[in-house]
Design a protein around this nucleic acid. Structure first.
Length: 213
DNA sequence: CTCCCGATAT
DNA sequence: ATATCAGGAG
């Protein structure tokens, strides 16, 4: 089955299983979502939510508090999310850039967002799709990348190239659903190490590329 | 391409 | 022992 013909099937079945697929990160403001998304690199949402729950109480009011925070102390706060020195540096630099260049407000344009330290298209798309209801693009994280390759929707390796392929295939009105839904499918069914092909809702249309028989 | 970080599955 | 986990920077 050709990729273009698979898309309606994929969308229909994912909608049935995950009717209201959305990101499981907790947030109250675009800024909180941006920080949470940065912290989510190589880390589960559940762990991020535990950290941010106390983090935004301790550093309230947006980017100023985190920009001004003591770095060593913030490192301890972020430690459970892994890559904590890197993430501390990134979150503080991003917060300062927000204050310096955007009056402390999270910009709602892709071209502005990706200028922020620690923000590339994946993170920007999460913020735009989720907080600003904007179909700026399709979120391509490790799950979306893997599932897209296995389904034969893209043969590319780089996330940006995969996103470009997907944007041609998936109708724009489905972009904000496609990302989160495929993430869930990738996390719970089309698992990296040991995909559950037997119980997969797409196993009849999947070419099973890259999956051990 | 490597590094950042550490836990867990295989 | 190695791969992977909601990536991005140098």
């Amino acid at each position: 089955m050709k990729p273009a013909a698979m898309i309606p099937v994929v969308l229909e079945r994912l909608r049935e299983k995950y009717p209201d697929a959305k990101y499981e990160l907790n947030w109250n403001t675009p800024y909180e979502l941006l920080v949470a998304t940065i912290l989510a690199a190589q880390c589960t949402d559940e762990r991020v939510n535990r950290v941010t729950a106390t983090l935004f109480q301790k550093y309230p009011g947006g980017p100023q508090a985190l920009a001004d925070a003591d770095t060593a102390e913030l490192e301890e706060d972020l430690k459970p999310t892994g890559f904590y020195k890197q993430k501390t540096k990134t979150v503080q630099a991003m917060s300062r850039a927000l204050l310096d260049d955007f009056k402390g407000k999270v910009p709602s344009r892709m071209e502005d967002l990706v200028k922020l330290p620690g923000v590339a298209r994946k993170t920007a798309n999460v913020v735009l799709n989720t907080a600003f209801q904007q179909a700026s693009g399709i979120i391509v994280d490790t799950h979306v990348a893997r599932v897209s390759q296995r389904l034969g929707l893209s043969k590319q390796e780089k996330p940006e190239a995969i996103e470009a392929d997907l944007m041609k295939l998936v109708p724009k009105e489905d972009w904000t659903f496609f990302g989160p839904a495929v993430v869930l499918h990738g996390r719970y069914t089309c698992i990296a190490r040991k995909p559950k092909c037997a119980e997969c809702l797409l196993n009849d249309v999947c070419p099973k590329l890259g999956v051990a028989a």
